[in-house]
Amino acid sequence: MGIFTEAYYLLLIFWRNCFPAGNFKAEDVPDLSGRVAVVTGGNVGIGWETIKVLLQRNAKVYMASRSRHKAEAAIERLKTETGKEAIFLELDLGSLASVRRAASEFLSKESELHILFNNAGVMGPPLDQLTSDGLDLQFGTNVIGHHLLTKLLLPALLAGVRSSPDQHARVITTSSSGAMIGAIDFASVRDGPARRKYTKEALYAQSKLANAIQARELAKRYGGEGIVAISADPGSIETDLQRYYRDVPGIVGVLTHLFLKTILRPAPFGALTQLWAGTMPEAINHNGKYAIPAARIAPCRAEAYDDELGKRVWEFLEEEVREA
């Protein structure tokens, strides 16, 4: 891709974030009685707001989070605000062993899953931070951990298809506008010289493009069995995801703070697009697509629709989660 193409994508990101369209509201989410949902990373930010709406619409919701202490505090706050109680599911997406334990625990309690929100993510950690399996923390958490979780929960999702009123189960993966400037380099997923040549921002963008590809490939493989997979850009949202950028020293930190204050929107807004994708009847007509704020379908970058690249990404993920 040339410099003019990349400039076009940057301008598109700016436009979409500064001027989001659509009139979808949380109040538009239909009644979800009888539906079972899992939200990863649901103890803060967009995930918490997503769970809040799901509970208000009578879904049974599992909050899949790493910290029991933080999750229990979040569950208590949700109970106060909604009168409903989410269920804690211990999950560390940065550990494939933890993902396997979480999936096993869920399947021991539930035979059906109707909505899986692959919502959790990490953005901009120090380059020295890796997953417990030696993977880039951002790609390992945002992409590989979610790939394994989805794979292991597929039996419950397929059972959810049969009991869902619309005969579909949904897998909604939180991507980002970063997908628009991402590029896939398989050599950068594990630590080494190939990874160290990238900035943490570039590695984040790679993971978010991979999320968009991941959703499209899941739709291609399981759409015929009733699985709807959509990737969702929540917009530029004020959440704990920016924690690695809040303490940047000097003028760069000041400018970063001012920029974020200018474009960031509140967490409830960030939940809208994935709630639309995960619950609204019309969303089943957009399998494999990329949704942007607020609750509308739009193109991702061209690489997200490259069938050969998609096949390579899927095969790479399958290999990474294969048990020795």
Rank of each mutant, 00 (worst) to 15 (best):
A86H: 10
L78P: 05
N118T: 10
F24G: 08
G47A: 08
A74P: 09
V29I: 14
A21T: 14
G94N: 04
N43C: 14
G45D: 09
E90S: 13
A37D: 09
F88M: 03
T50H: 05
K109A: 12
V99N: 12
E72Q: 14
S104G: 03
S111M: 03
Y62K: 08
T82Q: 06
L89R: 06
G22V: 02
N118A: 15
K79T: 02
A86E: 02
T82L: 06
A26W: 01
L89D: 10
F24L: 02
L116H: 11
E76V: 04
R57Q: 15
G47V: 12
F88T: 07
L93V: 03
V38L: 14
A21R: 15
I75P: 06
R66S: 05
V29M: 04
D31V: 00
N23C: 06
E72G: 03
L32W: 07
E72T: 03
E76F: 07
T82V: 12
F106C: 06
A102S: 13
Y62E: 04
L96S: 01
F88A: 09
A103D: 11
C18G: 06
K109L: 14
C18H: 12
E76H: 10
L113R: 03
N118V: 02
V99F: 13
L78M: 08
Y9M: 02
F88H: 11
G22C: 04
E105R: 06
A86F: 10
V39P: 04
L11S: 07
N23L: 11
S104C: 04
G47N: 10
S65V: 12
Q56K: 15
M63N: 14
P20W: 07
F24Q: 05
E112V: 15
I13P: 00
L91E: 05
E90N: 11
Q56A: 03
V36T: 15
A74I: 15
L10C: 02
A59Q: 12
